[in-house]
Amino acid sequence: MTIAKLIDQFEAWAPPQWQESWDNCGWQIEPGILGASAHVLVCLTPTLAVMEEAIALRASGTPINLIFAHHPLIFSPLKSVQTGTPIGDMVLLSFTHGIGVYSAHTNFDQVPDGTADVLAQLLDLQQPQPITPTRPGIGYGRVGVMPEAPSLKQVLVTIQQQLAPPDLLYSPEADLQQPIHRLAVLGGSGASFIGDVVKSGADAYLTSDCKFHQFQEARDRGLVLIDAGHYATERPACARLVDKLLSLGAETAQLSDRDEDFRQFWQRPHLA
């Protein structure tokens, strides 16, 4: 299948028109590859490290010609494209090596088997529904029933096992033994949805990039807020994207191993 047909198939499932007004889904760089057979490298964030990985794969015999990313490469309007800048160097390498960059962001967040659905499945949410519906049956986040109402501690252990975040933050006054009947999940930066999560009747909410006052707001509204980090809450959906692109007809598709969390937690040394 050609890249053009693959993108058409994908966009029929997750239309770019569903993106938020501030977003930039779709082609980021298209260096004249639409008629080529689709060989895809999937990643969370399209960085120079991922582009270098794609180039190395080509050199070793895997003909990668498309980086399919969740996060856009370009958000703000560009005023110039220059070498020595991340976007400028990505554009240069893209055209030099014939490797395009495409993004599915807030459109992929909403659909079945998108970022929220994958989290719901990993945590075994039953009867999941969108936290914030946008269209019939789809929307941002998922909220559902936790089988057998595990304790908050058990939920945190399951999140650690399934997502392997480098660290977990949660509301400090929460009782680790309290049962969690309903859990809400939203991959990436989801603190702005706290109001809708409270209305959904969730006992706890898993998301990322939460600030000090958002933890305060959640506490004051009787919600346990859990922050597992942006990378950990969205990276699992990238693996699902590989499966989706293969099912749509990509010749090959594989997951990048050069994706980065961009954060490292300092391990405080034990003082004698």
Rank of each mutant, 00 (worst) to 15 (best):
Thr96Lys: 12
Pro130Gly: 11
Ala69Leu: 05
Asp227Gly: 01
Ile180Phe: 13
His105Gly: 05
Gly88Asn: 08
Ala218Trp: 04
Val242Thr: 03
Arg240Thr: 12
Gly32Cys: 07
Ile29Cys: 09
Gly137Gln: 08
Asp196Asn: 04
Val145Thr: 15
Ile99Arg: 04
His230Ile: 04
Asn65Asp: 05
Ala202Phe: 13
His71Lys: 05
Leu93Asp: 09
Asn107Tyr: 04
Pro172Leu: 15
Ser103Tyr: 02
Leu183Lys: 03
Ala218Ser: 02
Val157Trp: 12
Gly61Thr: 05
Ile194His: 01
Asp227His: 01
Leu168Lys: 07
Gly35Asn: 08
Val224Glu: 01
Val111Ala: 00
Arg240Asp: 05
Phe265Gln: 04
Gly141Arg: 05
Val118Trp: 02
Val40Tyr: 04
Val81Gln: 06
Lys153Arg: 14
Ile7Leu: 00
Arg142Gly: 07
Gly98Met: 03
Ala174Trp: 14
Thr85Ser: 10
Gly100His: 09
Cys238Tyr: 01
Thr2Met: 03
His71Trp: 08
Ala204Leu: 09
Asp113Ser: 07
Val50Cys: 15
Leu122Pro: 00
Gly201Met: 07
Ala36Asp: 08
Gln126Phe: 09
Tyr102Cys: 01
Ala239Trp: 08
Asp109Leu: 03
Gln162Ala: 14
Ile29Pro: 03
Ile138Tyr: 13
Gly249Ile: 08
Ile29Lys: 08
Val40Cys: 02
Ala164Glu: 15
Glu11Ser: 08
Pro46Cys: 06
Pro150Ser: 13
Gly229Lys: 00
Pro72Gln: 12
Gly35Gln: 11
Asn107Ile: 05
Pro179Leu: 10
Tyr140Ala: 12
Leu168Asn: 08
Pro166Val: 15
Pro133Leu: 09
Asp89Pro: 06
